[in-house]
Design a protein around this nucleic acid. Structure first.
Lengths: 335, 335
DNA sequence: GTGAAAGCGCTAACAC
DNA sequence: GTGTTAGCGCTTTCAC
């Protein structure tokens, strides 16, 4: 930078002002500086800026993994939007390990970012109370978070309620839930969606046969396939399947085809996520649309706002807790 | 850090040495320092370290997007492996824009990272020659790269050759290629796989009807569906389909089902990517396994090696250009 | 509108 | 084994 300053015959300060587009530099001087910059091919040292001003130009995304579509799409959306603000996304993958989650949200790590989008699976809200969030942070996901931070989540219960209600209202009475959970102490995607499933049954006065609640190893086609195979082997009769993710539903559809059950004739099936593949499966899969795009927008909006007034009004706006509404996308696999 | 030094009654230098696990500190002093660190809840300022020592603890991943499975999985693998080395992944999404690709690989930006994994779609090798890669970089993807950098790529031509050869050897003579390209000037996934397709035909002396080479808007189920619909409408007969990605193959299978063509009886179908869904489609989709896991390993290995001897032997090892071999994963959609 | 001085928090190099 | 000195490249502050 001093080289540029010498070349343009100004001080380093003026170069800094020009580069950062600050006002109060004459057009003449600005032009000279810019000429010098491009002549010398000068590039800012971002580490120095970071050290001095605290601005890092990075937003952290702290998630369990990226191999599912969900977080990958979120990352893509965030990165795309951040580019427009001249920032970039730093990815922290915790692998859903409690230890790494805690490490990732430690004050020192968060200081690396001007803002953070955080999805925790293991860490408790209590663990977080202690942390001072001087870094603007937006939490996503189903786990409870401290009251003091922004939180955006999808409507797991509501979506599951809609899906199950639809199956019940179209005549199914014995609806299996693939990936369901009976443990109501924890609060995760599985238990929340199971709660919606039970609520729908309660509304219509239909009793849930616990033999229809099937745990799953992983929310993959394979997991869905195995769960449905177990269900068949158990001998428990069923005439509908609510699969907690579309990926697992793929395996369910395949397993049903393998045993000659027709969809939706013998069994109707509904998934959750409304992925791009649903419309091209055989049969086309009905699914719950969780509004991921709205969710990403909301997260970004919140984050930008917090980052904008960082240091301005002390905790200006109150923290928001948003639930993005879900809706049904009905196709051939349901009646 | 000075606070810690004062608390432990040592110099800042010693604190630095302890924190960075450098040898030459007595066990006694080390203990005192660590006690002071935890007492004061001290966390290193990484920006300062970065400025002073150049170490950033970050590896950059520069890719077009993350919404396809391919780069998302790569990101996941990289992040997972980097964690073990106490580093993290910074994501740069270029959106396949030439301008942003150039910006991302500029010297200033790359200096943010201790290493980089780079996939460029638009930028030419010539543009890159100028860049001094003081940052260890591994390039991936099909575009040509300067001779001076490491390059890892999948065997697009070989995989397509295997797939097409299999269709031909099992009796297909009129094989449509969905997502094919006739433009041989550029060098991208589509043209390379088309080249393999043509090679297989040449080997067996079968002529390619250009009406069977179908461009595609996007490598999605929708794109595949539309392409196959166009093919049907064109009236060009076909008895096999090589779809350049599994995602598009999903749409192809659906389109074939819609018009009552049986797979593999009337038409056999093969995809490319060997995704997790292939084994659960109806019919189960044969596909080309591109060896993405081997590829990720190779990339990581190369990167670690380059980063390890950064500054050591001047450009110690010669640059490597690796082609990961592909193989067939045959299932129900082929004979 | 522009510049000079000071210092962000750490570590390389060397002295003891 | 431990301390001292200097400085990484920028920006904040204040003077002109």
């Amino acid at each position: 930078m001093i080289d540029v300053a010498r070349e343009a015959d100004v001080s380093a300060m003026t170069v800094s002002n020009v580069i950062n587009g600050r006002p109060g530099v004459s057009a003449d001087t600005r032009a000279r500086v810019l000429a010098a910059v491009s002549k010398l091919g000068y590039q800012m040292n971002l580490a120095a800026r970071h050290l001095r001003s605290g601005r890092t130009g990075a937003v952290g995304l702290i998630v369990p993994d990226l191999d599912g579509m969900y977080y990958a799409q979120l990352a893509d959306r965030l990165a795309r939007s951040l580019e427009r603000h001249g920032q970039h996304l730093a990815l922290v993958r915790t692998g859903a390990s409690r230890e790494r989650e805690l490490e990732a949200v430690s004050v020192g790590r968060l200081r690396m970012y001007e803002g953070a989008v955080i999805s925790l699976l293991q860490v408790e809200a209590a663990d977080l109370e202690r942390l001072s969030f001087d870094t603007p942070a937006v939490f996503i996901g189903e786990r409870p978070v401290p009251e003091t931070v922004d939180h955006v989540m999808m409507d797991n219960v509501g979506g599951a309620l809609l899906a199950t209600r639809h199956l019940l209202s179209t005549g199914s009475r014995r609806i299996a839930i693939i990936g369901g959970s009976d443990d109501d102490r924890v609060r995760d995607m599985s238990t929340l969606r199971t709660r919606g499933y039970r609520q729908a049954h309660a509304e219509l006065g239909v009793e849930v046969d616990e033999g229809l609640v099937l745990r799953i190893d992983s929310f993959t086609p394979k997991g869905g396939y195995q769960a449905l195979t177990r269900l068949r082997e158990s001998g428990v009769p069923f005439d509908g399947v609510f699969t907690l993710t579309d990926a697992a539903a793929l395996g369910v559809l395949r397993a049903l085809a393998d045993v000659g059950l027709r969809v939706p004739g013998d069994v109707q099936v509904i998934g959750f996520d409304n992925g791009t593949e649903t419309d091209f499966l055989t049969p086309r899969l009905s699914s719950v649309e969780p509004g991921n795009d709205v969710m990403a927008e909301t997260v970004l909006d919140l984050l930008q706002r917090r980052m904008g007034l960082a240091g301005a009004g002390e905790d200006g706006e109150p923290r928001t807790h948003t639930m993005v509404p879900a809706r049904l996308a009905l196709r051939e696999s349901t009646r």
